[in-house]
Write a protein that binds this DNA or RNA. Structure first.
Length: 570
RNA sequence: UGGGGCGUCGUCAAGCGGUUAAGACACGGGCCUUUGGAGCCUGCAUCCCAGGUUCGAAUCCUGGCGCCCCAGCCA
C-alpha cells in the first residue's frame, strides 16, 4: 500500500471541487456583462432578535463563501428596524457565533439603524415625488382594504392627500405627535396588484420605543422592505442573497430602488436549510427553551450555533456541511441530518485524540497478574495522524471494562468477552475469561480472567488472532467522569408530520446522563471544549460550562458508526 | 386564469439538445483492521405525466398534474 498516494489524491479532489450553483452562475453572468464592474459584495443581515442556528450558518457560508470565491467582500449588518423585538444581547451572541464559524467581516460591521437619517430623507423624497402618503387607517382597516389573495384591494381614502399635507404629517409622525398605530407612511403603488406586497405597503410605522442600538432618537421605524434594499444600496452591495420567502418581495425591493434612483443591488433568493429530526423555527426553538424541554439556547441538542458548539461540533465540519448541501431553490427540500453527522465524524476522525473511557463499568480481575504491579503502555493518540504522537497509559491487575463487552451466553457474531473467550485489551494484553461473579440478584459484579504475558502490547509471537479488542481503564488510576449521551431531539424525521405538534415527538432519550463513568487519567483535567474520541464509543467534548479540573464532564458529540448495533437490529 | 416559485436515485444535488444521467449522504455486498471505528473495492435513477419539435431531449415547445410561498403597522 502506498503512503504517498493519499496526499496527491486529496489535492486533486480538492482542486476538482469547484463550487457551482445558480447564484454563482448569475454572478458570473454579471461579471461577464460588467453589470457591477466585476465587483462582488455580499452581506449577512441577521435581525438581532434571537440566536443563530445551522440554517443561518448556511447563509453565512454562502455569503462569505461567494465573496471569497470572487475576490469580494462581505459585510455583517444587523437588520435592526424593529426595536420591540430586538436586544443588545443578541448582537454580541451573533458576532461571537460568526467569528466562531470562522468568518471575518473586518471593519465592515453595520446596523440598519445607523442609516435611519438617510431612510427618513428617502421617505421624504418619495412623498415629494407623490409616491408615498400618510394613512390614518387603523391596522385593522388597512388589512381589510388590502383585499385577499384572490380579490384586489381598495384604495385608502387618504391616498390622495397633497404632497404638502403628507410632508407635514410625516414630520409630525417623526416628532411624536401621534400615538402608536395612529398613522403610517405608505408607498403609493397598486392596490389591485396580484402581488400583495405591492398593495401600498407600509414604509414607516410609529413605535414609541427606544432602540437597543441607537436609543430614543426615533419614534418612527422603517419596515424591512424599505430599509433592507436601501441598506444594500448604501453599502453598495452587489448581490443581496436571501431566502425564498422574499421572492415575492423582490418587485418591491426593486421598486423602491428604482423610484429613488439609487444604486441597485440584485436580490437573489435561495431555499433555506431544513434538517430532518429537528426544527429550525426561532419561535419553536424558543418554546423548547421556555417550556424546559431543553436547558437553554446552548443546550447541546439544539440546532443553534451555540448548541452545536457546546455539543462539540467543529466549525470546519459545519462549513463542510454547508458546502456539501449545495444551494438551490427547492423550498421543500430537507437535508438528512446524517450528512451533518458524517461531516462531523470525518473531521473529528482526523483530529480527535483517542482515549479510553468506560461508560458503564464492570471490574475485570486478572488473576495471574502480579498484585501491586503497574505497567505503562504506549498508546497512539491517533492512528490517522502519526504526528499526534503517543501517551503512556497505566495498566494494573484490575481494570474496568464496558459491561456491554461481556456476555455470559453470547450469540454467534459476538466478538467480545465471554466465558472461556480470549480478547485483546487494547494496547495491553490478551485476556481469557475464567470466571463470572454475580450477586444474589444475578447481577454481574466482577469478572475474572488470566492474561498471556507473551501478548504484551497486544500481539503474540505465535501470531494467533483474537476477534475482539476492548478498551479498559486501570481501576486505581481511573478518573470518575460524568458523561452526557445526546441523541436526536425528535424521534421522527419530520417532528411536525401531518400537522402534529412538535412537542409530541420529542425524543425522551435525547439526553441520558451517565455518572461514575471511568476515564483514563489523562482526562482528569480536560480543558473545556477539548474534543476526544472515546475508543469504540464516539466523539466527546468536555462541556464548556460544567467540566471542572478533576471532575470532567463530557458531552457525546456523535457516536461512532456502529455496525454491531446495526446487525442487532436486523 | 390572484401573484410568485419548484418538480432528476431513499435524501441533498449536478446537468444549459448528443454524457455510460456527476458527486455526496444513506443503504446493500466484499476486503482489511490492536477501535465491530477508519480505510479500500463494489452495487444502487432514464429524469412528474402526456403530446410535439429534432437524426437525437432530463435539457426546447404545448397542455396537464403535484408540491411550496404570499393577505404583519415582523424579518
Amino acid at each position: 500500500m502506498s503512503d504517498t498516494g493519499t496526499d496527491s489524491t486529496k489535492e486533486i479532489s480538492e482542486e476538482a471541487h469547484e463550487r457551482s450553483d445558480f447564484i454563482r452562475e448569475i454572478i458570473k453572468e454579471h461579471n461577464a456583462s460588467g453589470r457591477f464592474d466585476g465587483r462582488v459584495h455580499t452581506r449577512f443581515p441577521p435581525e438581532p432578535n434571537g440566536y443563530l442556528h445551522i440554517g443561518h450558518a448556511k447563509s453565512i457560508c454562502l455569503n462569505f463563501g461567494i465573496a471569497a470565491d470572487f475576490g469580494g467582500k462581505t459585510n455583517l449588518r444587523f437588520d435592526d428596524t424593529n426595536p420591540l423585538k430586538e436586544e443588545r444581547e443578541y448582537i454580541e451572541a451573533i458576532k461571537r457565533d460568526v467569528v466562531w464559524l470562522g468568518f471575518d467581516w473586518e471593519d465592515r460591521l453595520y446596523h440598519a439603524s445607523e442609516y435611519f437619517d438617510q431612510f427618513y430623507d428617502f421617505a421624504v423624497q418619495l412623498i415629494t415625488d407623490g409616491k408615498a402618503y400618510v394613512d390614518d387607517l387603523s391596522a385593522e382597516e388597512i388589512r381589510q382594504y388590502r383585499g385577499t389573495l384572490k380579490a384586489p384591494g381598495k384604495e385608502s381614502p387618504h391616498r390622495n392627500r397633497s404632497v404638502e399635507d403628507n410632508l407635514d404629517l410625516f414630520e409630525r409622525m417623526r416628532n411624536g405627535e401621534f400615538g402608536d398605530g395612529e398613522k403610517v407612511l405608505r408607498a403609493k403603488i397598486d392596490m389591485a396588484s396580484g402581488n400583495i406586497n405591492m398593495r401600498d405597503p407600509t414604509i414607516y410605522r410609529i413605535k414609541h420605543a427606544p432602540h437597543p442600538h441607537i436609543g430614543d432618537k426615533w419614534c418612527i421605524y422603517p419596515m424591512y422592505d424599505f430599509a433592507h434594499c436601501l441598506s444594500d444600496s448604501l453599502e453598495r452591495i452587489t448581490h443581496s442573497i436571501c431566502t425564498l420567502e422574499f421572492e415575492d418581495h423582490r418587485p418591491l425591493y426593486d421598486w423602491y430602488l428604482d423610484q429613488l434612483g439609487v444604486f441597485h443591488s440584485q436580490q437573489i433568493e435561495f431555499a433555506r436549510l431544513e434538517l430532518n429530526y429537528t426544527i429550525m423555527s426561532k419561535r419553536k426553538l424558543l418554546a423548547l427553551v421556555k417550556e424546559g424541554s431543553v436547558s437553554g439556547w446552548d443546550d447541546p441538542r439544539m440546532p443553534t450555533i451555540m448548541g452545536l458548539r457546546r455539543r462539540g461540533f467543529t466549525p470546519e465540519s459545519i462549513r463542510d456541511f454547508c458546502d456539501r448541501i449545495g444551494v438551490a431553490k427547492r423550498m421543500d427540500s430537507v437535508v438528512d441530518i446524517a450528512l451533518l453527522e458524517h461531516c462531523l465524524r470525518e473531521d473529528l476522525n482526523k483530529r480527535a485524540p483517542r482515549v479510553m473511557a468506560v461508560l458503564n463499568p464492570v471490574k475485570l480481575v486478572i488473576d495471574n497478574y502480579p498484585e501491586g504491579q503497574v505497567e505503562e503502555f504506549d498508546a497512539d493518540n491517533n492512528p490517522e495522524d502519526d504526528s499526534a504522537g503517543t501517551r503512556k497509559i497505566p495498566f494494573t491487575r484490575e481494570v474496568y471494562i464496558e459491561r456491554d463487552d461481556f456476555m455470559e451466553d453470547p450469540p454467534k457474531k459476538f466478538f467480545r468477552l465471554a466465558p472461556g473467550r480470549e480478547v485483546r485489551l487494547k494496547h495491553a494484553y490478551y485476556v481469557t475469561c475464567t470466571d463470572v461473579v454475580q450477586d444474589d440478584a444475578g447481577e454481574i459484579v466482577e469478572l475474572h480472567c488470566t492474561y498471556d504475558p507473551e501478548s504484551r502490547g497486544g500481539g503474540t509471537p505465535d501470531g494467533r488472532r483474537v476477534k475482539g479488542t476492548l478498551q479498559w481503564v486501570s481501576v486505581p488510576h481511573a478518573v470518575d467522569a460524568e458523561v452526557r449521551l445526546f441523541d436526536r431531539l425528535f424521534n421522527k424525521p419530520d417532528p411536525e408530520e401531518k400537522g402534529e405538534d412538535f412537542r409530541a415527538n420529542l425524543n425522551p432519550e435525547s439526553l441520558v446522563t451517565m455518572t461514575h463513568c471511568k476515564v483514563e487519567p489523562s482526562l482528569a483535567n480536560a480543558e473545556p471544549e477539548s474534543r476526544y474520541q472515546f475508543l469504540r464509543h464516539g466523539y466527546f467534548c468536555a462541556d464548556m460550562r460544567d467540566t471542572k479540573p478533576g471532575q470532567p464532564v463530557f458531552n457525546r458529540t456523535v457516536s461512532l458508526r456502529d455496525t454491531w448495533a446495526k446487525m442487532q437490529k436486523k
